[in-house]
Write a protein that binds this DNA or RNA. Structure first.
Lengths: 209, 209
DNA sequence: CTAAAATATGACCGGTTGGTCACATGACTG
DNA sequence: CAGTCATGTGACCAACCGGTCATATTTTAG
């Protein structure tokens, strides 16, 4: 957690520092990100930085915390009435929220992506271990509920599909960011609906009913 | 490409250096990997290293080349008779080959994973750009063929599913490595078959025929 | 106006990086 | 044996890293 000195700063200066830091961590993974570059870009002295933060990790964890809150704001509406909709609708809403988050906060999304990629870094191990299983542990009960409701096949390996659903979420977001014009909301929804339909019915030719 | 001096080395010394380097690049992404550590671990002088290789990148690209050949050996049998089997059987064979490769060469797999993760590194941009579209461009024609054969739904976005199939391949491999006991081949095949079945028929409850 | 407390600063530290280079050692050749 | 050429070597380089600290400046309080 940053020191009190940091929170005593005028809000605009605080935000400027955070913005600079976000840019740095979006451009370089944690280990490559440079405190020197951050202070130079933010126009503050090296010594000041260490009056605001314990160290590089302190700043990084603080940013992750802010990011987590922002992302939660996007996901919460989708999770409001978990019993209201069927599993695949819920999944679609969550994927859509994730995509929208990445569109609105591309730098946050980039940091998250890089973090996921460097999850075996020992210095970040505690953060990862604390938050990584979250995604899978989150989907597992949803899957079980969906099975009991008769929405999802009962013969699936829940652990594996929790893992894959979380992983696919990442890649769906990435695909949209890299390939879909973010201004065309309909295209995004069309592609997403198609993908959710695939999750439900597969990509094989449908059996004649 | 390494210098002639490197290839003049006794094979065992050459292999020892490569093995050390592979270990280093499996433990650290390219930018973090240290030439100093490699030479220390391999028991050669720093100067010698630069008599063998132009620079760090030279060594890394050489290792990637070796890895590529090794992986191709695993994939070739699955691709032998592309017209013989249906799309999903082909996909299963490819996924299985990928898993087996990761089991037999865990360090190679780790390097590949880290490379994929750091694909926006400018110094490696050329390698990535040269090989990354390969995966997607590889699956796209297969998908088109499968559609024309009536094995895959004709209404899918081929570009997106090429991307997702390649991405899912990575995660299926990762899941197996992290969660499945590599000695129990049946477990692996059972999980894999289940996943392929999901790709074909989805995870939703099946329609009554 | 003064004293004390908070904040800003950049030179500096030890350590690591990728890479170089003058030189030592060894092996082949005449 | 002498000479040539390939190979081995580690001290050395500039650049950068995260982090410290004595000191200068500013703000606050009495």
């Amino acid at each position: 957690m940053p020191k009190e000195t940091f929170f005593n700063l005028p809000a605009e200066k605080r935000d400027a520092i955070c913005e600079t830091a976000v840019t740095e961590f979006a451009a370089h993974p944690y280990e490559q990100a440079s405190v020197n570059r951050i202070v130079a870009q933010a126009g503050i002295a090296k010594g000041s930085f260490y009056q605001y933060f314990e160290n590089k990790k302190d700043l990084f964890l603080y940013l992750l915390q802010i990011m987590g809150k922002a992302k939660l704001d996007y996901l919460t509406p989708a999770l409001q009435n978990p019993a209201q909709h069927d599993f695949f609708t819920l999944l679609r809403d969550m994927y859509r929220a994730g995509i929208q988050f990445a569109i609105d906060y591309p730098l946050y999304a980039e940091i998250g992506k890089k973090l996921l990629a460097s999850k075996d870094d020992p210095i970040l191990a505690d953060v990862i271990e604390a938050n990584m299983p979250a995604a899978q542990n989150f989907f597992a009960p949803l899957l079980l509920q969906a099975i009991s409701r008769g929405e999802v096949r009962a013969d699936i390996d829940v652990a594996m599909f929790s893992y894959m659903i979380a992983a696919m979420h990442t890649h769906v977001v990435e695909y949209h960011i890299d390939h879909i014009d973010p201004t065309y909301d309909e295209t995004m929804m069309a592609t997403l609906n198609q993908f959710i339909d695939f999750l439900q019915h597969g990509m094989g030719v449908e059996n004649e009913t």
